[in-house]
Structures are given as structure tokens and as C-alpha cells.
Amino acid sequence: MENTETKPEVKTNKLSKKEVNKAFWIYQLGCEESNSYERLQSLIFCASMIPAIKKLYTHDEDAQKDALKRHLVFFNTEGTIGASIQGIALAMEEEKANGAEISDSAITSIKTGLMGPLAGIGDSVIWAALMPIIISIFIPMAKQGSALGGVGPLVIYTIVTMYISYLLIKRSYRLGKASITSLLQNGMIKQVIYGANVLGMMMMGALSASYVTVSTPLKLHVSGGSTIVLQTILDSMFKGVLPLLAVFSIYWFMEKKGPRYGIIIGSIIVISLVGSFFGIL
């Protein structure tokens, strides 16, 4: 900003509410639509910056081209929490357009530096916690045949997440990149990620207990005519030992061999059918 005082011929070029809102809507509507293996969300991030780029670099076509290209580089994050990156990018473009010394790589490195940590928060809070919580609340209604079980999650989840994104893009644009770099330095963002992971872990435990419902019907006939129900013995040892075993065997396999879904799903199918055939599961 100080440049405008020393060089009065440079007209200050501010973004209005309109460009920020447009960036919000474009990214929220399309952030997964054009997702590709090559550059993931780069295309939509660039598209969301277009209204701002047009406004900031109105009289400089080369600057517009450069700006478009710099936002077409690899980008990927979780869209709800990731909206804050848009706010920061908008703030940085605005400063740059008004003469501040900000290089292309400065903007790109802020974006790429934030996309991982913010995706971590978004995945564990928005998708692994909030979404299954909202669905879980409405499943009982759906079970009883009520249409509300379908309407509720759609309306509530959409409104809550969009509202969070809207607040984040507004706020991060206002505070600019300074706020985020200081957050990164004082460890605040680490705390948020850690907290989100703790919540995510607890939710995974709770959901595993509720929805992994594997059990055994096996009965052992012992001499003297009495029967022993295996599940009762398992329950008396540790309740839910089979669901726990299922989750952790898959987890262990993924840790060792990577996320090879084909093999995992194949094994689940074979175990289920064989187990059912012999009356073990």
C-alpha cells in the first residue's frame, strides 16, 4: 500500500464484495467437477480467480495472462476449509496489482503450503465427522420410512458447510496472508489439525462400533447336551471384538501394502461368502 503514496500515478485497485462472492460461488459449485489426475483442482481455482483478475489488471493484458497461468498450477485441497486459501490468494493478488513486490512463486508457495494442512482439517472435520454425524441423526427417521430422513441431511449439511466456507473466504481475504503466516508460526494451525484428528479418531471408533456389525452364529455342542454360543464368549471377553478385528486388519493391511482396495474388497467378499457357507459368520 505504501507504494500508492510514493507513486501517486498508480491508482489503487480494490476488490469489491462482488469479486470475492463470485470466487466463493465458482469454487464451491465446481471444485470437484473438473478434478483431474494431472493437476486436480487447478482449473477451478483459476476459474474462481477470473472475476478478480479482470478487475485488478483491467488495463494490462499480459498481467491478466500471467495471473491466469499462475493459478493453473497444481492445486488440491478440501473445498470447505480450503476456501480460506482463496481469500488469501485474492488478498495477495490485490496487493500485487497495487504495486507490492509479490512474486509468482510467493503466491504459489503460500497456496501449496496451505493446501495440505487445510485438507487434513477439512477431511477429518467436514467429511469424517460432520457428514456421518448428520446422516446418523437422520437414519432412524429414514428407517421408519420418513422422507425427512432424506431431506434433512441434504439441507443441513449443505447450508452448514457453505456457511463455514463463506465465513472463511471473507475472513481470510480481510486478514490477508499475514494472518495465516503468523498462524503457521505460532503453531495455532498445528493445534487445530491435532484437535481435528483427535475428534476424527473418536468418531471413527464410535462409527465402527455402531456400523460394523459382524458377528458369529457358531454354536459348539459339548458332551452332556449343552451348547456354547461362541458370540456370548467373545462378548464376555471383549464386546465388539469382531468389528474391531475387521477394522484393524484392514488398517494394518493398508499400512503395510498401501490402499489396494481391489484386494481388500475381494478378501471381504471371499471371507463373507465362505464364512456364511460354513456357518461361521
Partner: peptide
Amino acid sequence: WLMHGFEVMGAILPALGFALTISVI
């Protein structure tokens, strides 16, 4: 038995999603 086998699958499959999330955390 095949019908029941599919039910068992439905009971185990959610574990995949939960395991994946733990692994990503």
C-alpha cells in the same frame, strides 16, 4: 447361504471406510 453371505459383506464393508480414514489421519 449366499443371501446371508451378502448380509455379512454389508456388515464388514463399512470397516474399510473407517480403516481408510484412520490411515489418512
